[in-house]
Each structure stands twice: as C-alpha cells, then as structure tokens.
C-alpha cells in the first residue's frame, strides 16, 4: 500500500483566498444595488465594464508573462467593483476600462501580483485617472441626468442625514449610500474578513477631528467616500499593516490625512489620497509594530 507523506498540519481551515474575496464581493452587493436605484442602470454597466476589464487584463497579463493564472481567486473582480464604485456614473466607459487596466497591470501585476502591490490598485487607479487629464470626467456628478455637486464641496447646502444614509446625492456611484455600505462593512466584520481596528480607528479619527474643527459630523462621516474607503479600501490586506496595533496606527493616519485634505486641501475629498499615502507607510508601520515573541526578550 502506497502512502502519501506530507508535512503537518494535515488539516486546514476552510477559508481560502477565493472565499475571502467572494465575501468582499457579497459585501459590496448592497452598495451596487443602491447605486443602480440611485443612479440608474448605467451604474451597473460601469461596474460590469470595470470588472470585465480588470479580469481580462489580469488573465492576459499573466498569460503574456507566463505566470500562473489567478483570476479564479476573485481579487480582480473585487478591484473592478471597487474602482467602479469610485467613478461617477457618467464616466466614459473607455476611461472606466482604462482605470481597470491601470489598476491590474500597473499597480498590481507589475509589482508581482496578488499580495505584492504596495498600494491599493483601485484607489491608485482612481487617483491616476484624477490627476491625468480625465479630472473633469471624474468629478462631474449627475443624478437622473441632472448635474449635482458632491455634498463635501464648498458652498453646497448639506443634505439631510436621511438623504446621506439613503445616498440620493452627488458622488461616485458606490460611495453615496451609507446604509448599504454599513451593511456590507458589518457583514465583513461578522465574517471576520476584516477586523474592527482599521474602520474604527479611521472613522473615529475623522469624527474626532470633525468635531474639534466644528464640522458637520454626519456630513463628514457619510457625505464622501469615507465609508467605502474605511471598510473596503483601507482594509485591503496587502497594503495595510499585519498586526492589530499597526492597523490602529494606520487607521488613525488615514483619518488624519483625510481630514487634512478635506479641511485644507485643494480638493473637497481626500479618502483615496489618504489611503494611498498610508499604503506607502505600511512597511514602516509593520516594522514599528512588530510583535515581540513570547520569551523572545532573553537571548
């Protein structure tokens, strides 16, 4: 009888990279449904274009460089949805597709693929689109074809808290419905896909700074891309710290940078920039918050 010899452990938890990414996709569905209700069927088209472009570019790039195919891990699907959620509903579809290609090829694959990128692909692609010449197309918000401003812009009368919760206001297509994003975020917490550290530190810091600066708390928390960023983008495993202590530091950093940009910056919103900057600091935070081994202080 021939026996298989493998190293221990001989049992493994059932969670896989794919099951984790599937959970993220599920958590994003309420916001997707909300975006279709708020912005119309074009929200779904933009999302589909982003997802298809992301998956296709991952598939083709990996084939081109003869890397093992990883599209079945669903991480490219997550990137596609997240990028779409950061775009206005009227974005030309080719720009949306280009964003996905940048996210997957430039930000993710050129750095080695899943787990190797130093910055969040969706957030980085959004920032690249913003600072390229597509700035106008990236920040013109409409609902039912009528042009509206993001509630965070100067001089705009802030919508009611109910409107902020339900999301019928200007903004990127996946970021406006706070209720849907909270449902998704809580789902991720319950499924233990994310821990509370980053969202709580991030949202808490924004809340504290808002109050200290005399800002409208509900508007700051719910009016921009904060919930999408705090639950879905800042919590990206690859680009956030490994330890819980590090996650707290990182969350506070995201919150401070977001508020600095919102209060003093040239743009009304700062979530993607803040996350991107903290992504770059992640290796340093990891180093500073490294765990001390049990009994490791005696040589």
């Amino acid at each position: 009888m021939k026996l298989l010899v493998t190293p221990a452990p001989h049992i493994r938890d059932k969670e896989t990279t794919q099951s984790i990414m599937l959970d993220v996709v599920i958590a994003l569905l309420p916001a997707l449904v909300a975006s279709v209700v708020i912005f119309g069927i074009r929200a779904l088209i933009v999302t589909a274009v982003c997802v298809i472009a992301a998956v296709l570019s991952e598939f083709l790039f990996e084939k081109g460089v003869k890397r093992p195919n990883t599209i079945q891990d669903l991480s490219a699907v997550v990137t596609g949805i997240l990028l779409a959620f950061c775009l206005p509903v009227d974005i030309p579809l080719w720009i949306a597709a280009l964003g996905s290609v940048i996210a997957i090829v430039v930000v993710k694959q050129l750095f080695g693929g899943i787990g190797q990128n130093f910055a969040n692909p969706a957030a980085t692609a959004r920032v690249i689109l913003l600072i390229c010449s597509f700035g106008g197309a990236m920040t013109s918000w409409t609902i039912d074809g009528v042009s509206v401003a993001t509630p965070l812009a100067d001089g705009v009368i802030p919508p009611s808290v109910t409107t902020l919760f339900l999301g019928r206001h200007g903004g990127c297509l996946g970021e406006t419905c706070a209720a849907a994003l909270l449902i998704g975020g809580i789902y991720l917490l319950i499924r233990k896909v994310i821990s509370w550290h980053i969202p709580v530190a991030y949202l808490g810091t924004v809340a504290v700074v808002s109050l200290a600066a005399g800002q409208d708390l509900a508007l700051q928390l719910l009016g921009g891309g904060l919930l999408l960023g705090a639950f879905f983008m800042a919590t990206d495993y690859t680009t956030s710290p490994m330890t819980n202590e590090g996650k707290l530091v990182y969350g506070v950093g995201c919150g401070l940078l977001t508020m600095m940009i919102r209060l003093w910056g040239a743009t009304p919103e700062g979530v993607s920039y803040a996350i991107l900057l903290m992504n770059i600091l992640t290796p340093h935070i990891d180093k500073l918050t490294m765990h001390k081994a049990l009994g490791g202080d005696v040589k």
Binding site: T70, D73, M242, A293, L294
Partner: peptide, 20 residues
C-alpha cells in the same frame, strides 16, 4: 497560493511570532 498578507498567521501564532 501567494501570500495575501491577511495577517491571520500573526493573529494565530501562540508564540507571538510574525510567521509570514
């Protein structure tokens, strides 16, 4: 597959090591 830096190994290590 590739490490996705999820940090689960860090949380699970009883010796508090940075396994990854």
């Amino acid at each position: 597959g590739a490490c996705i830096r999820c940090g689960r190994c860090v949380d699970a290590c009883p010796m508090n090591l940075m396994a990854f």
